[in-house]
Design a protein around this nucleic acid. Structure first.
Length: 714
DNA sequence: ATAGGGTTAG
């Protein structure tokens, strides 16, 4: 990484370093979701002193294709003889027997006529529906629009008109109009389509009122009535009301069918009642209802929402066993749930299967894939999906753009993020929001690009967004890395001016900045830390005062601090505090903190022993903490040697691979040079990445020579 | 497109 590190003062040797899932990072809003892991791989710098650490069957089986002229107002007023569709009989002549064309319904001619005649009628009805949506909700205005239908209205016309309406004010008036003028044979259908209008507007109140009205009028509700109201309740995020309606069905003589089950499976799932959803599925299965792909998709989603991701895959397998062919919706749902499950590899194999089965990805497919890859930080895969979407002209929305930009921030794709941000701005539909700016500022901050971060901040302000805690945390990290301590302080004051309360992560970032700041500037930052979090301020103060305090106080205060902060930041705080100790040459204090970290189980499994190998695991430690742990381990090994303990054939240190986009040199690299410096006989294992190994013999002789050296010094 | 089920998330 190109960070500007803390100035290389002669007394402090500085090392670029990042640490892993223990680190405090500039926050991203993504991390607020429950699906996000608590911690992410992140970069950090530590300055450390090294030497210390269906089209329904054509219902026109009718051979009669005689139809009226298109029912638009214009044609009503125009001279029929001038009608462009003069091949069809006009309305006036339709009363004469000659007006009927009799055609074999199976002939291509019939289907052509059907389509044409249907199309023209249908589209006029749709236009009338639109006019009804925009007219005043008065009987007069509604009647004026409906006049254009003429007098030969059939029941189906009424159904089509209402089915296309979306205005909950005019729809009941339209319904009444038809009820008064038509002899309805299936009045329930008219009610059902009116209920759909209310559902479109998410107006459950009106839908329920309409239900009462129909019952009062003696119209018997059917399964469609119930599925419409139930799905309306579901759309209104009132799944419990959906359940109430489902339970009312028997009361009205309705037996639930497969669609009702399907809707209810979804409604129960959304109500959080997974058990009921699954028991309905069982019932549907034992009652041999045909369970279709859509219902399986719903089931997969329910399992996914309850976190049972293997359940999702089981349903998918069961579906195939039952002979239901997966469709695109199923695949998209599976991809989505595998993304939520953080199983990008499974998303990948499902996508492959989908392609092999001849399906073409649609926007939803790409969105699910992109999310699955981006959330799991499969950088290359996510970028490939992005490129493919771009090639196909599929535009991302803000959420998707933000998802991929957040990934770029996590894996250090600075240039890619810049390009994607430009793409985003060039779209007409998508404007960057505070999340977008936050991710970008984080990216520039992590890669040490101060001027870019500041430019993006200004762009954000121009777009009318106030800096939030996420942005300010990133900026503090940015200035900290660049060793611009005064700008860190200025940014901190800005946070207070904006009335934002510093959170654990923000304070952790400040603490992390301290680990990168030269000694003589630390005072400026301790002031900020004291204002931000008094407990942390006190611990830092004790630490800085070195030995001048009673034993035990420091550890107790530190323990209290760890108790007061979120479990997700404890390790990061502990790492930073140890780094600070190491920087200030307070090795004993560092050991105390490491010990406290072990006691409180902030750190686990640092040392391990098997009959054949003793190991030190420093993967999740900061450099300072890792070097402290090494120091402790060596002392433990010396003691074991003195006590005549049997050594295993191998001794090893696991640093992890230590590669990170924002970092030039990882923990492994720094550790390697430190091991050389102290002549430790550990060597990088060619077969095992991130491991430094030595033999019993080499370890023992090195420990011996170290002891004799110490004796000499003494 | 022709009375009922889902699709968009951070």
């Amino acid at each position: 990484m190109a960070h500007h590190l803390c100035s290389s003062t002669s007394s402090v040797s500085l090392h670029d370093h990042h640490c892993f899932s223990n680190s405090l990072s500039p926050p991203r809003m993504l991390q607020l979701t429950p699906f996000q892991p608590m911690l992410k791989p992140r970069n950090f710098n530590y300055s450390v002193k090294l030497n210390s650490l269906s089209l329904s069957k054509p219902s026109l089986q009718v051979t009669k294709v005689s139809l009226q002229e298109p029912l638009s107002a214009e044609t009503q007023n125009s001279n029929p003889s001038k009608s462009p569709n003069s091949q069809f009989p006009d309305k006036k002549s339709s009363s004469s027997s000659k007006s009927y064309i009799w055609v074999n319904p199976r002939s291509p001619r019939a289907s052509q006529l059907r389509r044409q005649s249907y199309d023209s009628r249908y589209s006029s009805l749709v236009k009338i529906a639109e006019s009804l949506d925009s007219c005043n909700p008065t009987v007069e205005d509604v009647s004026n629009v409906l006049v254009s239908l003429g007098d030969n209205i059939i029941e189906q016309d009424a159904v089509v008109v209402l089915n296309h309406m979306s205005n909950p004010e005019t729809a009941p008036i339209v319904l009444k109009h038809f009820q008064q003028r038509l002899k309805l044979t299936k009045e329930v259908i008219l009610y059902n389509v009116t209920l759909k209008v209310f559902r479109k507007c998410g107006d459950l109140e009106r839908a329920e009122k309409m239900f009462d009205e129909m019952v009062e009028r003696g119209v018997k509700p059917d399964n469609v009535t119930f599925s419409t109201i139930i799905s309306c309740a579901r759309l209104c995020s009132l799944p419990k009301r959906a359940v109430d309606w489902f339970e009312k069905m028997p009361e009205f003589g309705c037996e639930p069918d497969n669609v009702n089950y399907s809707v209810m499976i979804d409604a129960y799932g959304r109500a959080g009642n997974v058990d009921m959803a699954l028991s309905l599925y069982d019932r549907a299965r034992t009652e041999k209802w045909r369970i279709d792909a859509l219902t399986f998709s719903t089931l997969i989603k329910i399992y996914g929402m309850s976190g049972n991701f293997d359940g999702c895959l089981n349903v998918y397998e069961e579906m195939k066993v039952l002979g239901v062919k997966p469709n695109l919706v199923i695949y998209n749902t599976l991809l989505d749930t595998m993304g939520r499950a953080k199983r990008p590899w499974q998303a990948k194999s499902i996508y492959k299967e989908m392609m092999n089965n001849g399906f073409l990805p649609n926007w939803g497919t790409y969105a699910s894939l992109l999310r699955a890859y981006a959330r799991a930080r499969y950088g290359e895969d996510a970028l490939n999906v992005y490129k493919e979407m771009k090639e196909k002209g599929l535009e991302l929305n803000v959420i998707l753009f933000n998802t991929i930009l957040a990934m770029c921030a996590d894996v250090g794709y600075t240039d890619e993020a810049t390009e994607i941000f430009e793409d985003m701005k060039s779209t007409e539909t998508c404007k960057p929001d505070s999340w977008t700016f936050s991710s970008l500022i984080t990216i520039y901050s992590c890669s040490g690009k101060v001027s870019e971060a500041e430019a993006t901040l200004n762009e954000m302000l121009e777009a009318g967004f106030e800096p939030n805690i996420f942005v300010l945390t990133s900026l503090i990290q940015c200035y900290g890395k660049a060793n611009l301590t005064d700008d860190v302080v200025r940014t901190f004051n800005r946070l207070l001016e904006l009335g934002i309360t510093p959170d654990d992560r923000f304070c952790g970032c400040l603490l992390n900045v301290m680990t990168q700041t030269p000694k003589e500037e630390l005072g400026k930052l301790t002031n900020c830390i004291e204002k931000a979090n008094s407990k942390l301020g006190y611990v830092v103060k004790l630490l800085k005062e070195g030995e001048n305090f009673e034993g035990g106080i420091f550890k107790r205060e530190a323990a209290e601090l760890f108790d007061s902060i979120g479990a997700d930041v404890r390790k990061a705080y502990c790492n930073c505090l140890i780094d600070l100790c190491v920087n200030l040459n307070l090795l004993e204090r560092a050991c105390e903190l490491l010990d406290l970290g072990l006691t409180l189980e902030i750190y686990t499994g640092i040392q391990s022993k098997t009959p054949t190998q003793w190991s030190l695991h420093v993967k999740s430690l900061s450099l300072g903490a890792a070097l402290t742990a090494l120091h402790v381990w060596m002392n433990d090994l010396s003691r074991a040697l003195e006590n005549g303990e049997e050594f295993p054939s191998l001794l090893g240190i696991n640093t992890g691979h230590g590669k990170h986009k924002y970092s030039d040199k990882g923990l492994a690299g720094v550790f390697e040079s430190h091991l050389k410096e102290i002549n430790a006989p550990f060597h990088e294992a060619p077969e095992k990445v991130g491991w430094f190994l030595t033999t019993k013999v080499a370890a023992k002789s090195w420990l011996e020579s170290r002891r004799s050296q110490e004796l000499v010094v003494a």
